[in-house]
């Protein structure tokens, strides 16, 4: 494995540059970002590759991948835990069947239903279920994050979109730069632009 290629840095990169690139990659491929995405296992593999490359270049200090999203274990006993395990294994249809067999619809039930919907690509439904879970248990961080996830992700996306557009030079930039250059030139005894 070429660690420079994996991290996308040149072989001459400093430790600081490597750390910055690593932090950005962690933000991109962290399992939390892929909690509602069916490619979570691929992201985790990528994260392991990135950590290995970082360790090779810096000697140590990579973050552990943090495991799957199910850090908060269900309080409703084994059945909802089983649902979480099925979701982790990307066995969404089975997870949905397991949810259907549970009569009591707690906040966690709605949250896990939302995750299933999201994994399938039914984002409007997912949002509704997340919102219900959050309304039922407003103090729960996991449900709060999920309920705001679509809105927050969309905002980040719009920022990335703005960054992708080239930073064009506007007429104002050109004109003001020329005036400044002319002033400096005149201070030195010359005259860049005769008419100002």
């Amino acid at each position: 494995m070429d660690p420079y290629k994996v991290l996308g840095v040149s072989p001459g990169a400093t430790q600081e540059e490597i750390k910055t690139v690593y932090r950005n990659l962690v933000k991109k491929y962290h399992p939390d970002k892929y909690a509602d995405n069916p490619l979570g296992d691929l992201a985790e593999e990528k994260m392991q590759e990135i950590n290995a490359a970082y360790d090779m270049l810096t000697g140590s200090g990579s973050q552990s991948s943090g495991g799957s999203y199910s850090r908060n274990q269900g309080s409703q006993g084994s059945t909802l835990d089983q649902v979480r395990q099925l979701i982790n294994a990307n066995r969404i249809q089975e997870a949905l069947s397991a949810l259907d067999s549970i009569g009591s619809h707690t906040a966690e039930w709605y949250y896990l239903r939302g995750v299933c919907m999201s994994r399938m690509g039914m984002y409007a439904q997912a949002n509704t279920f997340y919102s219900t879970a959050y309304r039922m248990e407003p103090g729960n961080q996991e449900y709060a994050r999920a309920a705001n996830n679509m809105r927050n992700s969309n905002t980040t996306f719009y920022n990335q979109r703005s960054n992708m557009r080239g930073n064009d030079c506007s007429g104002c930039d050109i004109c003001s730069s020329l005036i400044c250059a002319d002033c400096c030139c005149e201070c030195m005894g010359g005259d860049l632009i005769g008419c100002c």
């Binding site: 991109k28 491929y29 970002k33 892929y34 995405n37 490619l39 691929l42 992201a43 990528k46 690509g121 984002y123 409007a124 949002n127 679509m150 809105r151 992700s153 969309n154 980040t156 996306f157 719009y158 990335q160």
Partner: peptide, 20 residues
């Protein structure tokens, strides 16, 4: 309004797949 949000979110998810 909801479709507008979901359209952007589908691009967010498409981007996550593209990253892999």
């Amino acid at each position: 309004e909801l479709a507008k949000e979901v359209m952007t979110y589908s691009l967010v998810q498409a981007a996550k797949a593209r990253d892999l």
